[in-house]
Amino acid sequence: MALALLVPGGRGQLGHDLLAVAPRDGFAHAPSSAELDITDAECVADAVATFAASARDHGLRPAVVNAAAYTAVDQAETDEDRAFAVNALGPGMLAAECARHDVPLLHVSTDYVFPGDADRPYEPTDPTGPRSAYGRTKLAGEERVLASWRRSWVVRTAWAYGASGANFVKTMARLEKERDTVSVVDDQRGSPTWTRDLATGLVQLAGLATTGHGPRARVLHGTGGGDTTWYGFTRAIFEELGADPGRVRPCASTEYPRPAPRPAYSVLSGGTWRAAGLAPLPPWREALSTAVASGVLGSAVT
Rank of each mutant, 00 (worst) to 15 (best):
L3H: 14
P8E: 01
P8D: 01
L14P: 00
D17K: 01
L19D: 10
V21S: 13
A22D: 14
R24Q: 15
A30L: 13
P31T: 06
L36T: 09
L36A: 09
D37W: 00
V44H: 06
A45F: 03
V48I: 01
F51K: 00
F51W: 09
A55Q: 05
H58F: 12
L60I: 02
P62H: 10
V65G: 00
N66F: 08
A68N: 03
A68F: 03
A76P: 06
E77H: 02
E80L: 10
E80D: 14
L89M: 12
G92R: 15
D102K: 01
P104S: 00
T110Y: 06
D111M: 06
V113T: 03
P115D: 15
G116L: 03
R120Q: 12
Y122P: 10
T125K: 10
R136G: 13
S148E: 15
S148R: 13
R150L: 12
V154G: 00
V155T: 05
A158H: 14
W159Y: 11
W159M: 04
G162E: 11
N167I: 09
A173C: 10
R174C: 04
R174I: 02
K177N: 11
T181F: 12
V182S: 04
Q188E: 13
W194E: 12
L198I: 06
H213L: 15
G222H: 00
G225Y: 01
G226W: 01
A243R: 12
D244N: 13
R247S: 10
T254E: 15
T254Y: 04
R262G: 09
S269T: 04
G270A: 12
G270P: 11
A275E: 13
A275H: 08
E286S: 03
A293W: 11
